[in-house]
């Protein structure tokens, strides 16, 4: 069984009368890319900040790299890299100088600076100050800062926020490269499930400070995959026809509806077989539940997501 990187149990955080987090429990194992999804104000950033010790929790336990207690967590946090919301940079320093500062903060050598600048396509920024960087460049520099201390666990809060489509693709590639090449475990957040679905291996859905659902990539693709929706008044006869067609992956949803998950391109052939078998077909066609619809369904239809 793979090592647990982060285990939080029933953590809660309250700001005056607002509950920012309510009994949230999450376990992240080594190698996972855990996507935290939630609309703005759902508690994603608060959750990440509690892990990094930036805000104090009111109740619950945090276990990081199997360490607990304030001293243990403080020690374990040396293995974390983070970029929360807007990139935290020194605007009057160059990319190299920003990295030098972070290397000093982490007490690590400056040897990797050149490699990181190249890795993040910032090698040719020279004396350009961070305040003159584009948002994409700042995001990439923020990731480079997190990597200078050689973290085993990376926490990225909305890393694609404000980026253009090419920037989003680039950021996605960087994250995937970090996981495959450096074996880093990642916790990242977004309010866009569609975007997260392209990188994450596991998902946690936060809503109003509560973790309302957790699922793996496979479960998500099963929940949101394309399928044939068949409506008929004769379910049993339809099932016999599907068996004859050697269709095994289907689900009888209710007394009039069957969802068929294979032979998606053979709608016409399936319909013909049903009609030939004298099955009364009310409607047949392919359908797909969009990721965003799935998310809205879970969160009760908040349109901000």
């Amino acid at each position: 069984m793979s090592e647990t990187i982060l285990k939080v149990r029933n953590i809660s955080k309250r700001y005056r009368n607002t509950k920012a987090l309510e009994k949230v429990s999450i376990e992240i194992k080594r190698g996972m890319i855990y996507g935290l999804i939630g609309e703005n104000g759902a508690g994603k950033s608060t959750f990440m900040r509690t892990i990094m010790g930036l805000i104090k929790i009111d109740e619950g336990d945090i276990e990081l790299f199997e360490q607990t207690g304030s001293k243990g967590l403080q020690h374990a946090r040396r293995k974390i890299g983070q970029s929360i919301e807007t990139p935290a940079l020194y605007p009057d320093l160059t990319a190299r100088e920003n990295l030098k500062v972070q290397a000093a903060n982490g007490g690590v050598s400056e040897r990797e600076i050149d490699d990181l600048l190249r890795l993040m396509n910032l090698g040719n920024t020279g004396k350009k100050k961070a305040k003159n960087f584009s948002l994409g460049m700042r995001q990439r520099l923020a990731i480079a800062l997190t990597l200078i201390t050689n973290p085993e666990f990376l926490i990225l809060d909305e890393p694609t926020n404000g980026l253009d489509p090419s920037g989003i693709v680039e950021m996605r590639e960087i994250i995937q490269r970090l996981v495959t090449e450096r074996g880093i475990t990642v916790l990242l957040s977004s309010h866009l499930l569609d975007e997260l679905s392209q990188v994450a291996t596991h998902y946690g859905i936060l809503h109003d400070g509560k973790l309302i659902h957790e699922l793996s990539k496979e479960e998500l693709s099963r929940e949101t995959r394309q399928y044939i929706e068949l409506e008929t008044t004769e379910i049993q006869k339809a099932v016999v026809v599907l068996d004859e067609l050697e269709i095994k992956d289907y689900e009888v949803v209710n007394g009039t509806r069957i969802n068929i998950y294979e032979h998606i391109d053979d709608v016409a052939a399936i319909n013909r077989s049903l009609v030939l078998a004298d099955v009364n077909v009310l409607r047949i066609g392919t359908t797909r539940q969009k990721l965003e619809e799935y998310f809205l369904q879970l969160t009760g239809g908040n349109t901000h997501a």
């Binding site: 010790g53 930036l54 403080q74 040396r78 974390i80 807007t86 935290a88 940079l89």
Partner: peptide, 14 residues
């Protein structure tokens, strides 16, 4: 204001 304090404290610095 720049958020750079997070870069230090999240490294477990006292």
């Amino acid at each position: 204001q720049n958020g750079t304090i997070r870069n230090v404290l999240s490294l477990g610095r006292s």
